[in-house]
């Protein structure tokens, strides 16, 4: 016998509902889609745009378009992909990549280890600020690349001077942002901590440091970007290994598809390292959900 279906459950009315009614999976899928529609939209549009970019690149290179800029010698996406598959099996290419990553890791980490504490101290103690600030302000506008000749004189090995350039590149963004963070610490929070019995060391650790953390991470993200810029420049000028050197060498050896491969590789590495820092920031600052 036919019974009218219940509007909500879709089950025939009158049938006893099970103790825990199994919810259909599609309901969750639909809700998830509805909740994440903004993000999905962004991913979708991004993917389409990327596809269009590749298509344009493909068309411009296959038809060797000359329109103000010349695409005659520019490698096609297919050629670059071929280079990539070749490079993946080439231990030398991997060594270039790993060496660059190692230089970034050392240079950037040293910069963070020096610039963050220095910024915290400069932000907290007036005398240190007054002493060091003029020096840092003069050194800061000098691009890391301009340090290359000096770095070669200063450091006994090429490797050290390249790491030094990377260090310099990321040092100032980290320092400046840490200082900025320190200058924005709410004095009322400092007073609140004092009223709760905090003394100098505790105030520093429990208030100034966490309050500056969001800005420190901004500095780290910017610093990481500049570290890559500086590294690639340094490698192109004085390197014998590294992804920057690889890219420059490809030009000298007329292996044009390797140029694009090197460039894309730098882009991906830069993106990866910034993402890593952002993720670390989210991990360290669970309160700072934006």
């Amino acid at each position: 016998m036919a019974q009218p279906a219940d509007l909500l459950t879709g089950m025939p009315a009158g049938t006893a509902p099970p103790a825990a009614p199994p919810r259909p999976v599609w309901l969750y899928v639909r809700r998830w889609l509805a909740l994440n529609s903004e993000a999905l939209r962004a991913v979708l549009i991004g993917a389409v745009a990327l596809g269009l970019f590749l298509l344009a690149w493909h068309l411009l290179t296959t038809y060797r378009v000359v329109f103000f800029v010349r695409f005659t010698n520019v490698p096609s996406p297919a050629a670059v992909y071929e280079s990539l598959t070749r490079a993946m099996h080439d231990s030398k290419f991997m060594m270039h990549v790993l060496l660059s990553c190692r230089r970034i890791l050392i240079g950037f980490s040293l910069a963070a280890l020096v610039a963050v504490p220095l910024g915290l101290l400069m932000g907290r103690f007036k005398l240190i600020h007054e002493t060091l600030f003029p020096i840092t302000e003069i050194l800061r506008p000098i691009p890391a690349i301009a340090w290359v000749p000096m770095a070669i004189m200063l450091w006994p090995t090429n490797e050290q001077s390249i790491v030094f350039i990377t260090f310099l590149g990321s040092f100032f963004p980290i320092l400046v942002n840490t200082l900025h963070g320190m200058s924005l610490v709410d004095p009322v929070l400092v007073r609140a901590s004092q009223c709760l019995g905090a003394r100098e060391v505790s105030i520093f650790r429990e208030v100034y440091f966490p309050a500056s953390l969001p800005h420190i991470f901004t500095g780290l993200t910017v610093g990481m970007g500049v570290a890559w810029v500086s590294l690639i420049a340094a490698e192109m000028i004085s390197g014998q290994y590294g992804i920057g050197y690889f890219t420059w060498e490809a030009y000298s050896l007329v292996q044009y598809s390797d140029i694009a491969l090197g460039m894309i590789c730098i882009g991906v590495l830069g993106l990866g390292s910034s993402t890593l820092i952002r993720g670390l920031g989210r991990l360290v600052m669970p309160w700072n959900r934006t």
Binding site: L189, R191, A192, Q194, C195, L196, G197, E206, V207, W287
Partner: peptide, 18 residues
């Protein structure tokens, strides 16, 4: 100087956000 003997409640709440 300030001390924990005199607790303070602020208008701006002044809770530690972290």
């Amino acid at each position: 100087g300030p001390s924990a003997e005199r607790g303070m409640v602020f208008q701006q709440y002044s809770l530690f956000p972290w």
